[in-house]
Write a protein that binds this DNA or RNA. Structure first.
Lengths: 282, 282
DNA sequence: CTAATAGTGTCTGTTAGACACTATCTA
DNA sequence: TAGATAGTGTCTAACAGACACTATTAG
């Protein structure tokens, strides 16, 4: 056993995403939805005053997910949310002072249900609007295969970052690497994690019920569609969208009470949709 | 900073899967394919003489994936393979002696290209045939949602294990936990990782080119189909399968030279299939 | 001829996408 | 009435699944 050897430190960091309503100008118009991520301003070196994903060191007698939840609660006052493990970042020099391996979690919260508040190691805790777009695609042929580079632009309100997602195909083997080309004001390699989390979310929203973690107890189908649209960053056709989600929701008797247009039926999540699907398949 | 605090140890472990040909009895019949995982017999406590996923401690100045590759090479003599990060296991008591966090990788190798050999911390390195099946499904309704338990049986040749995959749905939140019910002769929580790796592989084989990491340079479409079948544990229809993979392969002029039946055309991987697909979509 | 594997053509039902239409509310 | 949102019907092209058929080899 290498108990005597020098050990790396282990941290957990948690990406928290949400979708919020923007203030509406016209009382007849529905509010626009915006996709956001929660960051904290670091109180301490390294990266003092940079924005970072909330997180911290794992206690020696604490499970990883428990540590992620504790740190998130300590720094931002959020608790009791959906959480899944995203990726473990362990590059030797990702922390300038010492070797730190970071196990990164991703979580989704219902924006109507939030009480964010900076605490502990955080000077400030704040939601940043996300824009994430493919802006460049390059392909280089090599002797054995090719290298493809996709560059994504990650914009966090006033902060800007460029992420290169490099795909190397070497005969039968595919290697995917992610690198940061530029990420002003974002601490460590956290821009990488933010972009990877968005891609995981965009991917999972297509074939799972993960989006419902972003919804309140009751919602309209238009709300739900707008959440899909803002995450996928493209418009969907109403009739097709409704056909797609009809099995995942249950009608209620309630309606919205907006003024100036037809009221909309409220729905809630149908936790049995998978079973219904399986029954249909047989 | 908590440099003074007690730190966990960090290990990397690598799941290596392959598909091998079984010895054929009849010279006219094609060999059967079997799905296998590589395990080592532990030389040291804890879990001395149990079977384990190859792996070991991360050096302080070594990247995680580099450590995984080094440990795999040291213990089994395998090098230069496809590898992706699977999951990080960090339960407090997963190692009976001290706190160990294990970052687990998964890799796929071409069976015709193997030189496995036990070295270092390994008494023995051996391929185990895998059987992985859903054997029980239970659903319990709770006040706020339900809890669903799927039990999978993981059989590794002479070794037997039961894995419970527990899905808890609580209103809007879905929690998935994996627990080992029984895993004789398998070290640590490694049975969990083996089962999770199989699920990841079954999932990715449907919509990526990951299967080609298991193939030699040249192969027949029947070979390829049998690899899919043995991983997915179900039979596929030939005509449909061929339609599905046609864009992922390139014809060669070569043919098999078996006796007693029609020769089969040999193909190789087409590294451009994604681009072709995208072009088709526009 | 038989036994074995290789390879193709086509029908069917489901789904994704596009689009056009109808309905309901307030001022 | 206009302007806003809610909600539905239907056409088409693509695709997955099932199945039946033809082709080539050795003995």
């Amino acid at each position: 056993m290498s108990n005597q050897y020098e050990r790396p430190s282990v941290t957990v960091d948690t990406l928290v995403y949400t979708v919020m309503n923007e203030e509406s100008l016209n009382y007849r118009k529905l509010p626009k939805k915006v996709f956001k991520v929660l960051l904290i301003k670091r109180k301490q070196e390294p990266y003092k005053d940079f924005w970072a994903i909330p997180g911290g060191f794992v206690d020696i007698d604490e499970d990883l997910e428990a540590a992620a939840k504790r740190e998130l609660n300590e720094e931002t006052n959020i608790s009791d949310i959906y959480m899944e493990q995203l990726y473990t970042y362990g590059q030797v020099n990702r922390d300038p002072r010492t070797r730190v391996i970071s196990c990164c979690y991703m979580s989704l919260v219902d924006s109507s249900n939030l009480m964010v508040e900076a605490r502990d190691d955080a000077k400030e805790a704040r939601w940043f609007e996300i824009r994430y777009k493919l802006i460049e695609e390059k392909k280089t042929i090599t002797d054995t295969g090719y290298i493809k580079t996709k560059t994504y632009q990650l914009k966090l309100q006033d902060i800007n970052a460029l992420i290169d997602v490099i795909i190397e195909v070497d005969k039968r083997n595919t290697t995917i690497k992610r690198k940061i080309r530029e990420s002003n004001n974002i601490a460590f390699d956290h821009a990488l994690a933010i972009s990877y989390g968005i891609e995981r979310l965009r991917n999972k929203i297509e074939y799972t019920d993960i989006a419902f973690s972003l919804m309140p107890e009751q919602f309209t189908l238009t709300d739900l569609q707008q959440v899909y649209e803002v995450i996928l960053d493209r418009e969907l056709l109403k009739a097709n969208f409704r056909r797609k989600v009809v099995d995942m929701v249950i009608e209620t008797n309630a309606y919205t009470r907006d003024k100036g247009h037809r009221p909309s039926k409220l729905y809630r999540y149908n936790p049995n949709w998978i079973d219904n699907n399986i029954e249909k398949r047989n």
